[in-house]
Design a protein around this nucleic acid. Structure first.
Lengths: 232, 232
DNA sequence: ATATTGCAAATTGGATCCAAAAAACAGATG
DNA sequence: CATCTGTTTTTTGGATCCAATTTGCAATAT
């Protein structure tokens, strides 16, 4: 009898493992902006040579999560407030369009899943899994649009600003507000009102962007202020 | 006397050179879809080891220009008609927005440059530099918007579909039509009518997308037809 | 004390070598 | 003849080694 082997998912390559680990660490904010990523150190952490580490860093650079200078190594990218603002404008353009395409095609099953995730938001007001849930929620809404390129673009944008969003969410009332807005967007989807869902999404993103930029401007001004006082 | 060294632009790394060369070859269509990219062969072409070649291929994969399978190497990406269509929708969303932001900020100098490039279109109906000119034209129009992330996103999308566009342009009346539409967009910019310029751009891209997808569907159907006849 | 110069250490980019996997091929078997 | 099987060849992923460059630091000069 032929036993179909179960190895559907290939054993991941070393560089893949490292790439995913670093990517998650950066997105979640465990690696802070400006932090240097030494090839040798990372290689030892994973018990591999520097070669797969370099491949992972190359990919991260291509995604804009780290920036490297020749012979000087890689550091976690720091986004200026202008860049954060631009990325939110970008999301505010793409995501409503995505949702508009998705709503007419969403199955009841997809709506149920989205509602389930929305419920999880309410029950878990701590921010540990917030980013994860946020992704899942948006993914559940956008999935039916069946636009892989759009989805990838949206995810890339999310990756870049996620760590900033997380900081802001816990420091302000952002979490409660996001929960309410998600609820409204989901309700519009359930009512099959694509236009309204898109409009709400646009405002949701614009609002989140504004308050994040605001938060960054203030906290950076303060930091620079104390820094200059300290150095003076 | 202090002589400021002149090496403003660092000597490019080997992987950078290879990356740019392969990228251009793929975008221009010199490397055709599905073509295998052997590390060893490329390494010998550039007189380097496989290491910088692998870095270049990793970057190309991250940009979606090649796709690799573990232990099986890299091939130039083939886009389905659905993917081409989606990328044009994406461009049709981003580029008008970009232009709308750009028009109010365009200097007379920028307009002059754009007009100069538009003139070059007319004088050089051959398609050799068409893609190049097309990029330059759009870049001249979008530059003033001062949105690097949008620009990068647009360029990435252009890179993916450029080689298909080029084929279609020479096979149909696309070149003449594009020239006319560019003229109209530029006129709207010169009249500082951002809304109209954006609308024309959207239709320009939508139209180009439709006719390209149409062209691809037909030429691929024919190819598969002859192929199956040949193999039968 | 501060700026400058000349090593030494740390770090990266690339070359060479080796192991693992896939593809190509040849012979055996139904 | 098609198919299976074992072997050889090709090709990729990763380890180790070396060269080029930057960085840290000490000694010196101003």
């Amino acid at each position: 009898m032929k036993v179909r082997s179960v190895d559907i998912g290939q054993m991941a390559s070393a560089s893949e493992v490292i790439f995913e680990a670093l990517r998650e660490a950066i997105v979640k904010g465990d690696l802070t902006e400006g932090e240097a990523l030494r090839q040798d150190r990372i290689a030892r952490m994973f018990n591999v040579s520097r070669i797969p580490v370099r491949e992972a860093l190359t990919r991260l650079e291509e995604q804009g999560l780290v920036s490297t200078q020749r012979y000087r190594g890689a550091v976690v990218t720091t986004l200026s407030t202008e860049e954060v603002s631009e990325i939110f404008e970008y999301r505010a353009l793409l995501e409503p369009e995505m949702l508009k395409a998705s709503v007419p095609r969403m199955t009841d099953e997809a709506l149920r899943r989205a509602r389930q995730i929305a419920a999880a938001f309410a029950s878990e007001p701590d921010s540990v899994h917030w980013g994860e849930l946020n992704r899942d929620f948006h993914y559940a809404l956008y999935e039916a649009a069946n636009r892989p390129y759009f989805l990838q673009a949206i995810n890339a944008a999310l990756d870049r600003v996620d760590r900033y969003s997380r900081i802001q969410l816990v420091m302000t009332d952002g979490m409660e507000r996001a929960r309410r807005e998600h609820e409204a967007i989901l309700a519009a989807c359930e009512a099959r009102d694509a236009t309204r869902a898109a409009e709400l999404t646009r405002e949701h993103i614009r609002g989140a962007g504004r308050s994040l930029v605001d938060f960054l401007v203030r906290s950076r001004a303060e930091r620079d202020g104390t820094a200059s006082r300290a150095s003076a």
